[in-house]
């Protein structure tokens, strides 16, 4: 095989990979269009947005202690943060601090605007 032939093979291989992935790009866009037009996704539960008017009255001390215990039990309060973003944040913190997720306790995640 001459170098010229090899060069042509390498070039056509690279172009094939590009073309294939560009077409996949198109397919992903098409899938998105189809699913958003024809398939109704179940509504995702969002964490309630806290507004000053809707802020609940301070809970009694005993109730607050109870809530605290629940939080330690694995419940996380999300404020204006969806579950996926919260999962990403937890993974990043775990990665950065080198502390396994099962040893980290998250009480709440709040979006700062």
């Amino acid at each position: 095989m001459s170098f010229g032939q090899a060069l042509m093979i390498a070039l056509s291989g690279f172009i094939t990979v590009f073309l294939m992935l560009v077409i996949l790009w198109g397919l992903i866009v098409a899938i998105n269009k189809v699913t958003s037009s024809f398939i109704k996704e179940p509504e995702v539960k969002k964490a309630p947005r806290r507004t000053p008017a809707a802020r609940p009255a301070p809970a009694p001390a005993a109730e607050a202690v109870e809530t605290e215990k629940k939080t330690y039990g694995g419940e996380i309060k999300l404020f204006n943060v969806d579950e996926k973003t919260a999962a990403c944040i937890m993974a990043i913190i775990s990665d950065e601090t080198k502390i396994p997720l099962d040893q980290l306790i998250f009480r709440s995640i709040k979006a700062v605007e």
Partner: peptide, 13 residues
């Protein structure tokens, strides 16, 4: 992440 941002495929190529 790929489906959300399909232009990533170009970088993969």
């Amino acid at each position: 992440p790929l489906i959300a941002n399909p232009s990533s495929l170009i970088m993969g190529a």
